[in-house]
């Protein structure tokens, strides 16, 4: 923190426009949604005030909680798979043992720029039971017994739809972490006298504390992003089979649009928002505890 605070009018001058814009585009719709969530509203001018009836229904809604559990599972996989793997990759790229550094830096980000439809397509062709690459590979190595209709497997489907999501965003977190490590002295990574294993260990011990703040930002991005996960799963399974890969945002969208239940859909959005805050809050508590120990 600066010891000498700038004058208040300068602060206000700098903060006013960005925050006014932010409140207009983000908070007013959220408050509007909170307001509508108190109504039975089938989409149209007529609304009936029902108080907290939608929230009572929400608490008892099995699909909502099932979706939430799917989101938690997704978050767990993605924190490890996206941020964790991205961190390891960044450490590897920063050692002097990995060649073609600039190619890895450039290519990794690319998948996150492609619309979910196409990522979904490619992975559908991997999982496809007849023409798919996964079953073809299993047959090739003589494990035909393992081939199956992958996306129809109710136990596996959540994991299977998470993998494309993980793969797609590794590069995104790589890019962020790389920019953070760019402020660190190169010699830390490249000391010539160290062998690979030690260089790697050393980067973790020294680098991690230095970029801690950015790693936390990545974790917050990852958790909040996966609370809202929608596109990839929508393209691949639309939440199916049944509701076995349903996630919160998709459920909210389905209720609002496919079922045209705007009042209840608004209640679901508010529910997602509150649960998101709880998850992030819980995460910060845990990380505070850990950093104190």
């Amino acid at each position: 923190m600066l010891t000498r605070r700038p004058p208040l009018r300068i602060l206000i001058g700098y903060l006013l426009i960005p925050l006014a814009l932010y409140v207009f585009a983000v908070f007013i719709p959220l408050i509007t949604a909170a307001f509508y969530s108190m109504f039975e509203w089938k989409g149209g001018p007529n609304k009936t005030f029902t108080g907290i009836a939608n929230y009572i229904a929400l608490i008892q809604d099995k699909i909502f909680w099932l979706s939430f559990s799917h989101n938690l599972y997704l978050i767990l996989l993605c924190v490890i798979g996206q941020v964790g793997v991205a961190f390891v990759f960044v450490m590897m790229i920063n050692t002097r043992f990995v060649k073609l550094k600039s190619i890895h830096r450039t290519f990794g980000f690319f998948p996150s720029t492609i619309a979910a439809v196409y990522v979904g397509f490619i992975w559908l062709m991997i999982y496809d039971s007849r023409r798919g690459i996964l079953n073809w590979f299993l047959e090739l190595i003589g494990r035909e017994d393992l081939t199956q209709v992958w996306l129809n497997n109710t136990d596996l489907v959540m994991t299977l739809v998470s993998i494309p999501l993980i793969w797609q965003y590794i590069g995104y977190y790589m890019l962020i972490l790389l920019s953070a490590t760019s402020s660190i002295d190169k010699e830390i990574f490249e000391s010539a006298e160290l062998d690979g294993a030690n260089a790697f260990q050393r980067s973790i011990h020294i680098v991690l504390p230095m970029i801690k703040n950015t790693v936390i930002v990545c974790l917050v991005l990852c958790v909040s992003g996966n609370m809202k996960a929608f596109d990839n799963i929508y393209v691949m399974t639309a939440g199916g089979p049944g509701n076995n890969s349903m996630v919160l945002a998709m459920y909210g969208y389905k209720v609002s649009f496919a079922q045209q239940n705007m009042g209840y859909g608004s209640a679901i959005s508010v529910g997602i928002f509150v649960l998101g805050l709880l998850v992030i809050g819980g995460m910060q508590l845990v990380s505070n505890k850990l950093s104190k120990d």
Binding site: T154, P241, G242, N243, Q259, Q260, N261
Partner: peptide, 21 residues
């Protein structure tokens, strides 16, 4: 009828044809 009814039925039909309900 109403889209809300069909959305529920359609989802459950997947479970039904999978033999899960």
């Amino acid at each position: 009828v109403s889209p809300a009814v069909w959305d529920v039925l359609n989802t459950e039909l997947q479970n039904l044809t999978n033999g899960d309900t």
